[in-house]
Computed example of a mutant assay.
Amino acid sequence: MKAAGFGACIRYLSRSDTQSGADLSSSEANAVLAAGLALGAVQHVSAAGWSPSAALGATYGANAAGNAQSVGVPTGVTVWLDLEGVNNAANSDDVIAYCNAWFAAVKNAGYQPGIYVGANCGLTGDQLFWNLQTQHYWQSGSTVPTLPQRGYQMTQRITAAADVLCGLSIDRNLTLTDGLGGQVTWWCR
């Protein structure tokens, strides 16, 4: 990946209180960092149609933080909440409460909480910007709200055909400095 021009990769954290075999591990993190790539972490999202609540956000946020710690992710790194596939009947106040509880748990562990804004996130651009307690926004390749003032720090590029590199299916992302000067923070060696 490094030889192909990539500078970083993002891997998954579990929603449960322990990492599964398919999620980021300490040995994988060490291999990625030794290869000269920066590393980030995002928590798996529930299956489409899930219903958010503050209690669920607190639980998943605590699990994201605990799993990041178990893998060795240093404090100060952006840990991402994947917000997509929210039940269409969900109230936006519940989505906001879910996100802010998740952010609080991750921030209390010393990480910088960020949000991956995917399809059917349940919030408008104004709600994402004005009501969420984060400064890090990642735009999926889906149709998602525009963020006023800040914009996104990372954007996903979706290709028409499957994007496979080094035998791995990947989603390409571009990092940016947002409209307020913010940037993603990475785990680097």
Rank of each mutant, 00 (worst) to 15 (best):
F129R: 00
Q112P: 05
L39T: 10
G167E: 04
Q153C: 09
W102G: 02
N120Y: 15
V106E: 04
Y137H: 07
S142E: 15
W187F: 02
N30S: 13
A29R: 10
A3P: 14
Y152P: 06
P52T: 04
N131Y: 01
I96H: 04
A89E: 12
C99R: 05
L81D: 02
N108C: 10
W186E: 04
G182W: 04
S53R: 02
W138F: 03
T177H: 12
Y60A: 15
A162Q: 11
V42W: 05
W187K: 13
F129V: 13
Y12I: 11
S53Q: 08
V117D: 09
D93T: 08
V73K: 10
N131P: 13
A105P: 02
A29Q: 06
S53C: 07
A35M: 07
N67L: 04
T75S: 13
W102E: 11
G61V: 07
A161L: 05
G49W: 03
S16E: 14
Y98I: 02
Y137C: 06
C99W: 04
W186P: 00
F129N: 09
D94W: 01
S92P: 13
G167A: 04
Q133A: 10
G110N: 09
N100D: 01
G141A: 06
V77M: 00
Q183W: 00
A31P: 11
N63T: 10
G181K: 08
L174W: 15
V106S: 02
L24N: 01
Q183P: 04
N88K: 14
C166I: 15
G36Q: 09
S25L: 03
W102T: 05
D126H: 12
K107S: 12
A31H: 10
S142W: 00
Q133Y: 09
P113V: 03
N100M: 11
F6E: 01
Q135M: 15
A90C: 08
N87A: 12
R189G: 07
Q149L: 13
R15P: 11
G76D: 01
A90N: 08
G182K: 14
W187R: 10
A119P: 07
L33E: 11
G36H: 06
T18V: 13
S25Q: 08
R189Q: 08
A55E: 11
C166D: 14
V42E: 14
T134L: 05
W102H: 09
L81N: 09
T59D: 13
Y116W: 08
